[in-house]
C-alpha cells in the first residue's frame, strides 16, 4: 500500500465558543486506498479528538456520513482519496444548519419525512388468517428503485430549489411518498397527496436534476418527482373537470 500525505481543510464550528465557522487544515499520512472518512477517523484518533462528524456503517448503507467534499455532496465513506488531488475541502452538507463541525441539524428533513407518511397505509384491516399481502414481481418492480433511499440527504444539499425555498418538501421525502403511492398494498395516496401535491410539495421542483446526479444509491429522485407531477396533474384535471369521478 502506497502512502500519501493528504491535506484536508475541514470546516470547524463550535456554537458555544465560535461566532463564525472557520477552516482548519490537517496533514496526515494515509494509504491511497483510504476514503475521506478513513482520513477523518485517523485525524480524530491521532491528531484532534475534538473533530465532530457523523458516521456509522462505512459501507454506503446507513446514510450518516454525507458531507460536502470539494463542494459536492458525497458520502465520505464512498469518496476515495485517490480521486482527489491537492487539498481536500470538507464541509457539512449545504442547506442545513450546522450543529457542530461537520454535524448538521437534520430536524427539517425528519419532520418533512414524517409528513409524507413513508410507510404502508393499509386500506382495510385483514385478519391474520387471510395471510400475507401478496404482490407480483411486476408490482414490486414499479417501486423497488425508490426503496433504495438511505435518507442521506445528499439530494437536499444538491437541490438549488431547497436552498432557495426551505419549505420545499424536497427530493427524498417526495420520492419516498412516491414509493408508497406505487405500492399495490398501499391505500394512503390521498393523504400523501395533501402534502406532496401542495405548493410546497412537488411544484417547487424545477427539474434541475442535481438530486439524481448526487444520489449514491441511484434512486433517481428527479425522475420520481416528474412522475409525481404527471400523476398530480391528472388528479387535478379529474377533480376539476370530472368532479363525479372524484376519488
Amino acid at each position: 500500500m502506497s502512502q500519501r500525505l493528504v491535506e484536508l481543510e475541514v470546516l470547524r464550528f463550535n456554537p458555544e465558543t465560535d461566532a463564525e465557522p472557520t477552516f482548519q487544515r490537517y496533514a496526515v499520512e494515509c494509504p491511497e486506498e483510504w476514503v475521506v472518512l478513513d482520513a477523518l477517523n485517523h485525524i480524530k484518533e491521532t491528531v484532534d479528538p475534538t473533530l465532530s462528524y457523523r458516521w456509522s456503517c462505512h459501507m454506503a448503507v446507513c446514510g450518516s456520513c454525507g458531507m460536502m467534499i470539494n463542494g459536492e455532496p458525497k458520502l465520505s465513506c464512498k469518496s476515495f482519496l485517490r480521486d482527489y488531488e491537492g487539498v481536500i475541502r470538507v464541509e457539512p452538507l449545504a442547506h442545513f444548519p450546522i450543529q457542530r463541525d461537520l454535524v448538521t441539524v437534520i430536524d427539517d428533513f425528519v419532520t418533512k419525512l414524517k409528513r409524507v407518511k413513508p410507510y404502508l397505509v393499509a386500506g382495510e384491516a385483514r385478519p391474520v388468517e387471510a395471510g400475507e399481502y401478496r404482490q407480483t414481481p411486476a408490482q414490486l418492480k414499479t417501486y423497488k428503485q425508490y426503496t433504495l433511499c438511505i435518507n442521506c440527504m445528499l439530494c437536499y444539499a444538491a437541490c438549488p430549489e431547497y436552498g432557495l425555498e426551505p419549505k420545499f418538501i424536497g427530493p427524498a421525502a417526495i420520492s419516498l411518498a412516491h414509493r408508497y403511492n406505487l405500492d399495490s398494498r398501499d391505500a394512503g395516496r390521498e393523504a400523501r397527496q395533501q402534502e406532496i401535491a401542495a405548493t410546497e410539495g412537488v411544484w417547487e421542483c424545477s427539474f434541475v436534476g442535481a438530486c439524481s446526479e448526487v444520489c449514491p444509491e441511484h434512486v433517481d429522485p428527479a425522475g420520481a418527482l416528474q412522475q409525481v407531477k404527471i400523476k398530480s396533474t391528472l388528479d387535478w384535471f379529474r377533480e376539476h373537470l370530472m368532479p363525479w369521478r372524484r376519488t
Binding site: 395533501q194 401535491a197 410539495g201 411544484w203 398530480s232 396533474t233 387535478w236 377533480e239 376539476h240
Partner: peptide, 15 residues
C-alpha cells in the same frame, strides 16, 4: 395542506 392549482399550468407546460 391544500393541493396546488399549479398542476394546471404545469400540465400545459408539460404538454
Amino acid at each position: 395542506m391544500a393541493k396546488s392549482d399549479k398542476a394546471l399550468v404545469w400540465g400545459l407546460f408539460a404538454a
